[in-house]
Write a protein that binds this DNA or RNA. Structure first.
Lengths: 120, 120
DNA sequence: ACTATTGTATTAGTCACTTAATACAATAAG
DNA sequence: CTTATTGTATTAAGTGACTAATACAATAGT
């Protein structure tokens, strides 16, 4: 999956979200070692400092931890990962519904539109 | 409706989106005069220049037009407004579905979650 | 005619994000 | 022990968004 970073929002924020997705969707398994800061930075075409900042955020939240010279590892706490997954999903659904209602669409219309899109 | 601006994205972009919503949802009727740059800026707690920038964007897209000293008016082209409404809705649905799939949820799961939320 | 209000333009300064270029500490690997 | 690789920290510079403070032009209202 490419990184697809844009200039609409801070890059480090987008990286955090990208990695959160990779974690909750299983791209990175619990306990798995992830590439080094420098590797990830190259891969995403950003400065190592920017990648470092994103990783620090994730570390602060307990989603990963670093071991001085061995590298960085995803947490093994599956409960934490599942909880994050539900949080992210819930938040996105709520944001989405709010946005759609602000466009003047009724819950009923929204539901139908989704059902139609999902069929495709 | 309060403006609810955050620091995650450029404020002028958020203002553009806010006003687009107000137009397609009918808060501002076609042809209606909208408050002055200075009034809107005060209301949204931003600098007049920032509001001006957002309004210029909307004007560039043809959604409103300014008349030197009479003020600014929403377009009377209802077709344009309806088209925008559909564009915005479609884009948001697609973005939403992409995000949810990246979290590792199947279309089926997504549909069920929405249905559940909409019931509330 | 005068005045207030409108949109618009200009210039400067502040701040956060980003990049760049290093440097250092710790340790796994040889 | 030596070396390469890891995470981490520091300093400087560039960029864009935002604010601030004006100034000007046009015209509706009086």
């Amino acid at each position: 999956m490419s990184w697809n970073l844009d200039n609409d929002r801070p890059i480090f924020v987008q990286i955090v979200e990208h990695l959160q997705c990779d974690i909750v969707s299983g791209v990175y398994a619990p306990g798995q070692k992830i590439p080094s800061v420098r590797e990830l930075a190259t891969e995403a075409s950003v400065n190592p400092n920017t990648m470092q900042r994103a990783l620090s955020e994730l570390e602060r939240d307990g989603l990963m931890h670093s071991e001085r010279t061995s590298g960085r590892f995803i947490t093994e706490d599956i409960t934490m990962i599942d909880k994050l997954k539900e949080e992210l999903a819930t938040k996105r659904i709520e944001d989405f519904l709010k946005q759609m209602e602000r466009l003047g669409l009724s819950p009923r219309e929204i539901k139908d539109l989704i059902a139609k899109k999902v069929k495709e």
